[in-house]
Amino acid sequence: MRDAVNIKVAGFGGQGVMMFGQILAYSATKDNINGLWFPSYGPETRGGTANCSVIVSEKQINSPVFKNANHLVIFNSPSLDKFRNNVAPEGLILYNSSLISCEVTEEDRLCVGVPINDIALELGNAKVANMVMMGAYLQLTKLFSDETIHAIIKKILGERKADLLDVNFKALEAGKDFIKKQGIVYA
């Protein structure tokens, strides 16, 4: 599974899109494999969409840019329209069904909607929606262990925001549980 996975993460600025991508790259580094992350700034971000590219690989990472993602993680509707045609066969499209109401389908791609905003609100903190997405993502892809992800989140929050650790971990679990309850298996 870890033979060069190309991941595109996209959404509105402020939804935790960049952080989502960075956590994956940090996790790869912690697991002693290779991680690469780069943000997209510039003209294409006008209108409020932000996106980043991540590559996780056991081998040396060659091209930092890719045409088609193996995993597309989508936080809002404009990002879905922009990137849904750039997913590799047998790829995963994981999307925020709180903001994308119609069901997404693409031939030969697994499309999974998770109501991350609703789940985060139930947990009492709208800001952890991206960690709900992370939980769902990891449950599907099995890319990194709980131990790795917990250590990275702990490091990112630091001592200053240590009080937020608990709700972030709960958000991860809630995302995982949502996928488990649906009985969806990907990797």
């Binding site: 790259a25 580094t29 991680g35 690469l36 992350w37 780069f38």
Partner: peptide
């Protein structure tokens, strides 16, 4: 600029 802006292990 890509080497400047991206992150790697």
């Amino acid at each position: 600029g890509l080497i400047g802006q991206m992150m790697e292990s």
